[in-house]
Computed example of a mutant assay.
Amino acid sequence: MKPSRTPPPAARVPFWTVFASIVGLWATYFALITVRAELLGLPFLDEMLWLRLLTTFCGILITLGLWLVLRVFDAQPMWLKIGAALLLAMPAALLTAQANALIFGELQAAVDGMKLAQQGFGDDTLMVDQQDVALATERERLIDFATSRYFLLLAWCALYLALLTGERARAAERREQEFRTAAKAAELRSLRYQVNPHFLFNTLNSLSAMVLTGKTEAAERMIQTISTFYRRSLADDPTSDVPLRNEIALQQLYLEIEAVRFPARLRTIYEIPPALENALVPGMILQPLVENSVKHAVSPSGGEITITLAAREEYGRLVITVSDNGTGGGTGGGAANHAPGHGIGLANVRERLQARFGEEASVVSGLVPGGYATHLRVPILTRGRT
Rank of each mutant, 00 (worst) to 15 (best):
P3R: 12
S4D: 07
P7D: 08
R12P: 01
P14Q: 04
V23Q: 04
F30S: 09
L39E: 02
L39W: 08
G41P: 07
L45A: 14
W50L: 13
L66K: 01
L70S: 12
A75D: 15
L88S: 13
L94S: 09
A101F: 13
F104E: 06
E106W: 06
Q108R: 13
Q108E: 11
D112Q: 13
M114E: 14
L116Q: 06
G122Y: 08
L126V: 14
D129F: 12
V133G: 12
L135T: 11
T137A: 06
E140Y: 04
Y150H: 10
L154W: 05
A155E: 07
Y160M: 02
T165A: 14
A171R: 09
Q194A: 13
F199P: 00
L200M: 13
T203D: 12
M210W: 08
V211N: 07
T213C: 10
Q224P: 00
F229S: 04
L255P: 03
E256Y: 03
A259K: 15
F262Q: 01
P263E: 08
T268S: 07
E271D: 15
A275C: 03
P282A: 08
P288D: 04
P288I: 01
N292Y: 02
A297V: 05
V298P: 04
S299I: 00
S299N: 13
I305T: 13
A310F: 01
A311K: 02
E314H: 12
Y315H: 10
G316P: 04
L318I: 05
S323Y: 03
D324M: 03
T327C: 01
T327W: 00
P340A: 14
G343C: 11
N348C: 11
L353W: 05
S362R: 14
A373L: 07
T374V: 15
R385E: 13
R385W: 07
